[in-house]
Nucleic acid binder design. Sequence first.
RNA 1: GGGCGCUUAGCUCAGCGGUAGAGCGCUUCCUUCACACGGAAGAGGUCACUGGUUCGAGACCAGUAGCGCCCACCA
Length: 902
Amino acid sequence: MIEQKKIELPTAYEPQAVEGKWYRFWEENGYFKPRPQAAGRPTFVISMPPPNVTGALHLGHAITATVEDILIRYHRMRGDDTLWVPGEDHAGIATQTVVERQLANEGTDRHKLGREQFLERVWQWVHQYKSRIQDQHRRLGASCDWSRERFTLDEGLSKSVREVFVRLYEEGLIYRGERIINWCPVCMSALSDLEVNHVDTQGALTYVRYPLKPLEGQEGDATEYISVATTRPETILGDTAIAVNPKDPRYAKLVGRLAVVPVIGREIPIVADEAVESSFGTGAVKVTPAHDPTDFEIGLRHDLPRVQVIGFDAKMTTEAGPYAGQDRYEARKNLVEELKSLGLIVKIEEYTVPLGRCQRSDTPIEPLISKQWFVKMAPLATPAMGAVKVGLLKIVPERFNKTYMDWLENIHDWCISRQLWWGHRIPVWYCDNCGQMTVSREDVTVCPHCESTRLRQDEDVLDTWFSSWLWPFSTLGWPEVTADLQRYYPTTVMETGYDIIFFWVARMVMAGIHFLGAVPFQTIYLHGLVRDAKGEKMSKSKGNVIDPLEVMDEFGTDALRFTLATSSTPGNDMKLVPERIVGNRNFANKIWNASRFVMMATAEAGDGVPEISEVTPRTLADRWILHRLARLTGEATRLIDEFQLGEAGRQINEFFWSDYCDWYVEIAKVQMREGDEQAQRATAGILRAVLDQSLRLLHPFMPFVTEEVWQHLYRTSVADAAQWPAPALIVAAWPESNSAALDEAAESDFDLLQEIIVRIRDARNQANVEPAKRVQVILAAGSQLATLTAQAPLIEFLARTEKPQLHASLPEKPAQSMSLLAGSVEIYLPLAGLLDLDKELARLEKEIATTELEIARIQGKLANEAFVTRAKPEVVQKERERLVEQQERLNKLRERRAELAN
RNA sequence: GGGCGCUUAGCUCAGCGGUAGAGCGCUUCCUUCACACGGAAGAGGUCACUGGUUCGAGACCAGUAGCGCCCACCA
């Protein structure tokens, strides 16, 4: 017995009222967990890119969660053993900066607190924001397995990090060395190359002349000079050489001589080095090994001293003589003034420099020499390139292959030590007794070399990405050989924004191959960035950030998800325009109301929700909607498998709104009203079956409204829940395309019917016929007579006509009629009194013109022998048929014109 | 200095080798018993430009222009 005959549901979908309920229901029933019992089915695994614990989720996270959830839900419905591992990232510098800022507001700082207390403060922060991020992912509907949630700093992952550090050290791939590194004077830490953003900045190219030291016996002669160009005059104080290209004839005789550094008077050699480009500046370069990467290299080649004139605080050091203590830019200004007064400035040109800035604090980076830990990358990069080359790893969209390859080919060693407190502390101990260093998986309290206890652990922590790059396997328990690791590694898809290919994706590939001998995922799917309506990147400082929570509050999660999923194509950025979200909120409402109608209309007639393969079409419309659904199902499945989620979503939307709601549901009203009980039952069955299938197709995109509606549908149709095909839509089977339902004839017949109806409606509009008025209609249907006779009631209802009068042909055209053509079917609307002859003639003229144009086009094509012989035969055939059709049409139009003209 | 992407209806975007599409906006009409977060109909594009490939090109190739992004140790 059906539970309720009277179905009372609100007339508008209320997302806020249902979303939380269904998320809890899914989670409590364990649907987010993998189903290893799905034996024989493939695994489908995604490691969720862990959001930083620095704050709230933004739209970038929302699109990530949406896309991944679509893939996960789709595969879950297909019966795959599906696992989505969530987690969060401790985000070293980012988090430490935020908490330090908080401390500053309280008038204290981390040094006053001490390391231990400070870390406690950070953990407090983390706990608070971690749960906030979890909640937000729940709001987004993310069906990830929370029982497997990981944090990059939790015990297990810390173990992975140490394991990796020690192994790489033992393999000689991690080393400690004094190198020139990117130093952020605000974060007070070294950074990797990736954490430096280059920004074109208006600067100056200052030409400075250095006096040469006179040769022996030349004292007293006029001073000789050598000029150089620099964008950073303050580093002059740290110059230890001047370099020229060895092939440069201008300077050949100066090589080997000494120049004198202005102001401080240091005597420095003029050396020849290939790195110098003769065509730039003066062709001579000042060399400051302590403050420039190129100069550092030159310094190595020529064994030059390194004089550090800028300190880690970005102020001039005592080496800077009179400038000691000044800020680097202040010193620049002052020094240039002094050089001017000394007459040593040749000229100053405007010049644009790519200034490196800290990704976090936006501070100009200072290249400084410092002792840091590095990972030797080349040996790791080679196999990572190989994986893509041989196709073990597929990148979608493919064009990012080049980005990936280019970076790996030119890879530099990775500076992994950070002068911070928040992060994985470097597992290295130094003995104050014997001076030896110990690298260990376990904490060390006694020096293994001398048994002293005077040990100090390295003060620094590791780059935050040093834990992230292990994510796909560290989250599964590695280095332990857990059941999860064995079953779910390698994962299936890595889905993330293209902006972190280098930071994260490429490094994960390297780590996966190196430590587990297998690429960590089969496919890398890269989505674009979400921008504001003007196309600008969203950022807090610009104040154009759209908060996904606010969007969800106002329009519902499904609307946001559907918008994010369908607003662009893979790898392309999207502008988030509010109108689009509104439109998709409306779509959710459309789903709701169509479903509400179907449930109400079929409550009496229905028995259950039939399987789509079991329903029997009785009418043309039945055949047509089943055909359309079958084709859609095949297409949607293919598109999702190809990661064309947007196109899949758009097609499902179009089917549901246009085909199902606008046409089939309207037709079903006629079939339900006019048919006998059997017809009613059949129609009700199709209404429900197609709705059921549509909800399944939509579920990955819009999980909440579809689950809500699906549950209503089954509760009102199949009283015994044990009889349902699944306990919930989230675990219902993804539809199979029912190829038996494919029916091209139904499609073309229905197209004709639609055209007839649309033309009549249009004519009524043109003639200003009262909407409620039923008009007379006479059809000359030719060969379509039988088909259309059966559809007469639909024309009557949908075009609001009287009972159509159908004929094969009309020996005499109805007088005082508007005449229309749909395909080759002639339509006459006797509209005595309403017919405006001039208007009608004008309309005919216009139609004749377009038809003639079309005929000319086809004739031209067919007259082209190359086309007839070379084009595919079916294309040629189609054009021929079209020509006949159009000519027939033209004849009829002309006839009609002649009649009216009389 | 390299590399990549975009340029299709007023706006936001699909389409990617065989008659130009969607949503929003616009015009007209409709409170017909699922939905006005709705329905019906309509107007509106030389698919940036120039060459080429092809019987046929928004769609493929080459180049140009504008916009955007990424990488980069010519100081």
